[in-house]
Design a protein around this nucleic acid. Structure first.
Lengths: 250, 250
DNA sequence: ATAAATCATGCAATATCGTGCAGAGTCAAG
DNA sequence: CTTGACTCTGCACGATATTGCATGATTTAT
């Protein structure tokens, strides 16, 4: 692993976890603690993080992550969410995946709409408290990173459903490699839901395009539509259109 | 947890609660009181807080009416939650019912504690995002009023568990009629969980005592313990003690 | 006044840190 | 191709920091 890669990972990890523990990261990467410490020392000198005994913290201490993620790029996600909400009509069975972008979809859903919403994300379910929608919560063992149910019982519950639309949450979309994610179990669950759904749609912010994660979920050609921000360069998404996927701009 | 994070937490907690109790915080974080005391001593030396016997106070006391209003309603529940958290030990399987009082229990649980927590409330599950605990989410059809899973699939999932402690959320407790609630399905679920649990505990605020709702859950004699606010008139709860239920004051 | 809780201090075990040094790899000049 | 400067990395070692426990002092509550 290159030094710059390692340092990029540290930055990412700081943003997602709000902390770095030197010993843990050394073990995880199979490196000595000295290397990690040197990275942290240098990055602290560059003002990229705040060095503390035992590890490092972000320079701007992590706000409650709900707040952080909300403020990250709310505008774009809100627009995507509103556009996605237009696909939802009364009487349908909708499956909503976890993630902050899908949370915006939930917020954009009319409160009085008579739909049935299935989800394996307790966060999404909690957001539906004030809606009229019938909610089906998929249980299972919670995968802590993305906070969604996984495991055999979740798969069994999903097998009982036949959603009209699946709003898939994703972190990486690539024209050739399709959708991918960082966890094996998570990928399996998403695949199971998509395979049972009539339509599969995902909401995409720009930074996810072109990215690849270790675990393949489904190919672009298996998607019904991609909802992405308007105003992007055509060459960014022409590759997707060639796969006959519908592109909806928001 | 890194030292600086712990101290940041102390600052936050001082702002939100208006006080720090050394013993409680030590228990909550799974550390010795000495460590907390050292933090408080050092932070007091740095002028970040005011050290007092038993804990610490903010240097600039919070505006009185803001403090009282915010904490009046939740202060009692926070105390109940912290007391209840003392019952939870590493290695146990805990089932946590929905409700705002149980939410305070979750907030009081040590973040690093190795427990397994089952819940049929997406709200409770979402609160556990930052905890190390293994979380088992019980799925089903969400009963919107109390936001908990109900129905056959929830019952089936519960039948797989054998919780050590069930923290039952309730709205009505009566010395003769026991615990009751407003929805039939909800009562059935609570009964099912209680019947499979080794211990059943409930957190009670004063206004729930003596109330009766249409649907019976379980009798007082089937409870292991009631956790209720300290300082109530003895005649208020003597009737419960006669049922051989343990009364824990918080 | 007496019991219980809380505190400060010293001590030992562990974790983390900084520094110096050596081996391996890279790269460009010779 | 060889050589030497340079960088990166891991290890060793002593220094420092953190933590939990024991002990006796102090404070608080009854």
């Amino acid at each position: 692993m290159l030094t710059s890669q390692r340092r990029a990972l540290i930055t990412t990890r700081l943003a997602s976890d709000g902390q770095i523990v030197a010993g843990e990261l050394a073990q995880e990467l199979g490196l000595s603690e000295d290397t990690i410490r040197r990275d942290l020392r240098d990055m602290a000198a560059a003002g990229l993080l705040k060095r503390v005994h035992g590890g490092a913290l972000p320079v701007t201490p992590a706000l409650p992550d709900l707040e952080t993620r909300q403020t990250m790029s709310t505008d774009v996600k809100k627009r995507l969410g509103r556009k996605a909400a237009e696909l939802v009509h009364a009487g349908l069975l909708i499956f909503i995946d976890g993630g902050t972008t899908n949370a915006e979809l939930v917020r954009a859903l009319p409160r009085e709409l008579n739909v049935t919403i299935a989800t394996h994300s307790p966060v999404i379910a909690a957001l539906l408290e004030k809606h009229r929608a019938e909610v089906i919560l998929i249980g299972g063992r919670l995968y802590k990173h993305s906070m969604v149910s996984t495991g055999a019982s979740a798969l069994a519950a999903i097998a009982m459903l036949r959603p009209d639309i699946f709003f898939l949450g994703t972190t990486a979309v690539h024209p050739t490699y399709g959708l991918s994610t960082g966890d094996y179990e998570e990928a399996a669950i998403k695949r199971a839901i998509a395979s049972r759904s009539v339509e599969t749609v995902t909401l995409l912010t720009e930074e996810k395009l072109g990215a690849v994660s270790p675990h393949h979920v489904i190919g672009i050609e298996d998607m019904t539509a991609l909802i992405m921000p308007a105003g992007m360069a055509p060459e960014t998404y022409v590759a997707y259109r060639q796969k006959a996927v519908r592109i909806i701009e928001a």
